[in-house]
Simulated scan of single mutants.
Amino acid sequence: MIEKLAEKLVNLTVKEVTELANILRKEYGIEPSSLLLKSDNNKNIEKSSEKEEKSIFNIILKSTGASKLSVVKLVKEITGKGLKESKDLVDSVPSVLKESVNKKDAEDLKKKFEEIGAEIELK
């Protein structure tokens, strides 16, 4: 159960994280860390992380290519989302499909998408 919760938290969008922070603040009196809210600190963390070789990536769909249906099916498979949510992700290109994926898995997923004509960015 905890692992599923952790996976859901890791895959939240920025908007969802903001909503979660607001709920925690209003309903439970929990203040998010000021470090996470200050964009300057986040930029500094990102810059120091970029100096090291990246090992964790976000998978971003940039283009669906000619076979949109195949892309929707693959998005559904890798995200575990329903067909409608997967289609919505594909329709709202560019969109983050998966966050915090290790390098090997990210490259494997990128290869799968490229084989069906989609354009993927690892960031």
Score class of each variant (00 low, 15 high):
Y28M: 13
N11D: 08
A6I: 03
L74A: 06
V96D: 01
I23G: 05
V17F: 10
N102H: 09
S86P: 15
E99G: 08
L12D: 09
E107L: 15
L61F: 00
S95F: 01
Y28I: 11
L20S: 01
E107D: 05
I60Q: 07
E16F: 06
S33P: 03
S34C: 10
V96Y: 00
D88A: 14
L83V: 15
A21I: 02
G80R: 10
V14C: 04
E16G: 07
L37K: 07
V10N: 02
L109D: 05
G29E: 04
S34H: 10
I120N: 00
L83N: 14
K76N: 13
A66P: 14
V101Y: 13
S95K: 14
V71N: 00
V10D: 03
S49P: 13
S49C: 10
E50W: 12
S33R: 05
G29P: 06
F57M: 02
V10S: 00
L89V: 08
L89R: 08
N11S: 13
N42V: 14
T64Q: 08
S34W: 06
S55F: 09
I60C: 03
N41S: 12
S33G: 04
T64C: 09
I56T: 08
E114M: 02
S67E: 14
L97V: 07
K15N: 09
E114L: 04
Y28T: 08
